[in-house]
Amino acid sequence: MSSTRLVKLLGAEVRHQRQLRELSQRQLAALAEVSQAAVARFERGERAPTIPVLERLLAAMDVQLVIGVEPLDAHLDARIDELAARPIAKRIDELGLDELLDQLADFPQVITGTTAALLQGAPVPVDALEIALRWRDSKPFTRWLETNYGQRWNARWGEFGGVWLEPEEPGEHRWSTWYGEIRATMCDELPETIEVRHGGRSYPVVPLVELELSEPRAAELLRRYRDRQLAGGG
């Protein structure tokens, strides 16, 4: 388990427990004697709380942390099984996908990666909008990021911020924005797409067969999904 994944898992669990109790971030912060901004960063998986702070957050909700181990990446199989039972429309809504795509309407892009796999019916985990974007559209994209509180992923620090926004600058093409996280594949020309429709909306997506050739992360998740189907006789 990578430290980055562990941070995201901890953040997601804090958020889940808080929402179960109908607490706001501000209320939880007051109970645990931390700042609301710190709670927000923890829940987004941008920064790990110290053990004492994590214990205070959980204790404020009458729960505690239990440590365990599991086979490497076993969580993915459980997550895929969980997502297979959930409607695609609900996942699109939870991701805020339509709102984010509406905001990106000023320059062309196509949906790729795990987001494209989701829209084509694969129950794979998606934690960001993944798009293919042309290099010649990088300047309007940078202006959009500046307008929408964009922060670029800083691999050295393991969090968003502290590096240049522009795609031309070295670093992962991954940004946190006001509307959600975006991961971009920069290219000279946009890849060929197919159209899929959900809820009366059309989405241009890279086909699954192409994803398996060009997107290693999506390809691995699709392979695990097929393996789950075979194991279950599906």
Rank of each mutant, 00 (worst) to 15 (best):
G200C: 11
A30F: 04
W175R: 02
L6H: 05
A37G: 14
L6N: 02
L97V: 04
H198Y: 04
D188C: 05
E192S: 11
K90A: 15
P52R: 06
I182R: 02
P123T: 06
L211R: 04
A105H: 06
M61P: 05
A12Q: 04
R47Q: 01
L54F: 14
I80C: 06
D98S: 11
R86N: 06
L95A: 00
L190I: 12
V66L: 06
W153E: 03
R223V: 03
R15N: 02
R86V: 09
D188R: 12
A37D: 15
E33A: 12
E181V: 10
N148T: 05
Y149P: 01
L101S: 11
E146K: 04
D98V: 15
R217M: 03
E189Q: 10
P123M: 06
G161H: 11
Q103K: 11
L145S: 03
D188T: 12
P49H: 03
R224M: 00
A105T: 07
P87K: 00
R5F: 14
G158R: 05
A59W: 11
K8S: 11
H16R: 15
R152S: 09
T185L: 01
D127Q: 09
P49M: 05
L83W: 04
G199Q: 12
T115M: 04
D102W: 00
L57Y: 10
A60F: 09
A78L: 14
R26Q: 14
